[in-house]
């Protein structure tokens, strides 16, 4: 944690509104992005943003600095977003390990995978493809993919956050990766076809 942020946190604990405001300003974009990634909805991401900082204001007195403020806020925002999904019953049924199998390789799509994607990711059409592919991923797969692959949670932490078993995390993760990769390959085909 930076010295400057430590000082701001101490001031915020003493009720300094300006310090609080600066902390909020510093972290608001990341908190909003967390909500946006998990919920795929700007209005709900804004709710996550507001609720996360309301929690921060209430709990800042007890913040001990064991982790960085950004890590702490990220966890809070993730929990708030997951809570919203549970409220909306978007999580779906628990998937049994035995009910799912590894998908076979899909030869045609393997060969058609573009090699210059990373260079072209800023293209609007590619960006739209990426967003559509993520949005098309069913919620119970998307959450595992986001927590584990995009945000770097361990399998164990992701399982705890989602209230599912570790083996379930692994199965959903694999399914998510394959689903999104295949969707991306299909969607990119559409882009290539019209360009």
């Amino acid at each position: 944690m930076e010295i400057n942020e430590k000082a701001l946190i101490e001031k915020a604990k003493e009720g300094d509104q300006s310090a609080l405001s600066n902390l909020i300003h510093e972290h608001s974009t990341n908190v909003y992005n967390t909500g946006l990634k998990i919920l795929q909805n700007k209005a709900e991401a804004e709710d996550v943003l507001q609720e996360t900082f309301l929690i921060m204001i209430k709990k800042i007195q007890s913040f001990e600095g064991k982790s960085s403020l950004s890590t702490w806020l990220y966890r809070v925002a993730t929990n708030v977003a997951l809570g919203k999904i549970r409220e909306n019953k978007k999580l779906g049924n628990t998937l049994e390990l035995d009910a799912l199998d590894y998908e076979p390789l899909k030869g045609s799509q393997i060969k058609s995978w573009p090699t210059d994607l990373e260079k072209r990711w800023k293209d609007e059409s590619i960006k739209a493809c990426l967003e559509r592919s993520l949005a098309e991923l069913p919620t119970h797969f998307r959450l595992v993919f986001i927590l584990r692959d995009l945000e770097g949670y361990s399998v164990e932490s992701a399982a705890k956050s989602l209230g599912i078993s570790k083996s379930n995390v692994k199965v959903r993760l694999m399914r998510a990766r394959l689903f999104i990769r295949d969707k991306l390959a299909t969607n990119l085909h559409c882009v290539e076809a019209v360009s």
Binding site: S28, Y32, L36, L130
Partner: peptide
């Protein structure tokens, strides 16, 4: 690639305005 999706570089000003208003700060 997916790490780069659905991320804003800066919080939209109207979202920031509503945030501070809701927090009364």
């Amino acid at each position: 690639l997916m790490k780069k999706v659905n991320q804003v570089k800066e919080l939209p000003s109207e979202v920031e305005f509503r945030l501070y208003k809701s927090l009364k700060i």
